[in-house]
């Protein structure tokens, strides 16, 4: 069983994600902004992180930079959730430590698939 942290400020999407991953067997933690997310990641040490790009206080890219900077968190795969997925965004995502990009709006299937990509199936 793995731990996932999802950083997203929009409550609707938070709810959606929670519902979507309810039956995945993974433990899900949600943070509402980058600052909260950073604290959460450090305490929980997840196996996978999803983060929206635009969030208050500390946004997704800043979060990514912070995570990359710290050796304990640098290895955790980070997926950015963003509305636009042009090559520029993908490059930018990589620059800030992102392993991949999940475009918005995403279907549940897409979300689950992404999770499965980085995490082994829960027992």
């Amino acid at each position: 069983m793995a731990t996932i942290v999802f950083c997203e400020d929009d409550p609707m999407i938070q709810k959606l994600v929670r519902t979507a991953l309810r039956g995945s067997g993974h433990e899900l933690h949600v943070a509402s902004d980058g600052e909260e997310g950073l604290a959460l990641i450090r305490s929980v040490r997840p196996d996978l992180i999803f983060s929206d790009v635009s969030m208050p206080k500390v946004d997704g890219y800043q979060l990514g930079d912070a995570l990359k900077a710290s050796p304990e968190t640098a290895g955790i795969p980070l997926v950015f959730v963003t509305a636009s997925v042009q090559r520029a965004q993908i490059a930018e995502a990589e620059q800030h430590g992102g392993a991949g990009v999940l475009p918005k709006p995403f279907t549940m299937a897409e979300l689950r698939a992404r999770v499965a990509e980085y995490l082994p199936a829960a027992g």
């Binding site: 979507a20 509305a83 995403f106």
Partner: peptide, 24 residues
């Protein structure tokens, strides 16, 4: 335009997602 489309996509994610859940 990019901001707006970004913004639009947020509620759309909710609409799409929840309706998907309801469906599946």
């Amino acid at each position: 335009v990019s901001i707006v489309s970004h913004e639009f996509r947020t509620p759309l994610t909710g609409i799409q997602g929840f309706s998907e859940l309801m469906r599946d």
